[in-house]
């Protein structure tokens, strides 16, 4: 089992394909999102601009997602994380901030296929209708009883939750995607 995976790449097929994917490098960055120093640091580490309210910016494999008015989630390859943390520390030395490597604290899933919106809509109190939720938006919410965040990319959803609830989250998604559970609301 890779350290980056909790469930050994568990996979379920149904209305949508649910699969665990290796967690990339994830950095939680807290600070003043309006500060030019923070914008410089985020661009240096990810190549992305500071995302606007509830948005996620992408540059190659890197992402910068808006998590809270004072918090970003930075996504980068795992091997780039130590370098990214030292870059952040150097560029934000004068600013009140916190940068933490949370890669090993998260589980990451991909949700792909026709029914992906519907599967997620069964579990989260979010309007997932086409037009209401589109690529470029990051949503922090709950998945049944656990917190999760997700965004759309490459024709599906990428979903991040706490590593400790990975099995619960996977079982939820697999259950919601089980064949025979079609609602057809977004069809």
């Amino acid at each position: 089992m890779s350290d980056a995976m909790v469930l050994d790449g568990a996979r379920a097929e149904g209305l949508a394909t649910v699969r665990e994917v290796p967690a990339p490098g994830l950095i939680a960055l807290k600070g003043d999102l309006g500060a030019p120093a923070l914008a410089d640091a985020v661009r240096a580490v990810t190549g992305c601009a500071v995302p606007g309210l509830r948005r996620i910016e992408a540059a190659g494999a890197a992402r910068a997602g808006w998590m809270a008015p004072d918090e970003l989630l930075l996504v980068a390859p795992r091997e780039a994380v130590p370098g990214a943390l030292s870059t952040l520390e150097a560029r934000l030395a004068a600013a009140h901030h916190l940068a933490a490597d949370v890669s090993d604290m998260r589980a990451v899933f991909r949700l792909e296929g026709q029914g992906a919106r519907e599967v997620l809509a069964k579990l989260a109190p979010v309007d997932l209708a086409p037009g209401a939720f589109e690529p470029g938006e990051l949503r922090r919410t709950r998945l049944a009883q656990v917190p999760a965040a997700f965004w759309m990319e490459q024709g599906g959803f990428t979903l991040v939750c706490f590593r400790s609830v990975a099995r619960y989250a996977f079982d939820l998604l697999a259950g919601a995607a089980a064949p025979g559970g079609e609602v057809g609301h977004f069809a």
Binding site: L53, R54, A68, P69, P125, R139
Partner: peptide
């Protein structure tokens, strides 16, 4: 008022 989401009670 912080993130602009019309949050369901179960999210709060």
């Amino acid at each position: 008022p912080h993130c602009g989401i019309d949050a369901d009670e179960t999210e709060l």
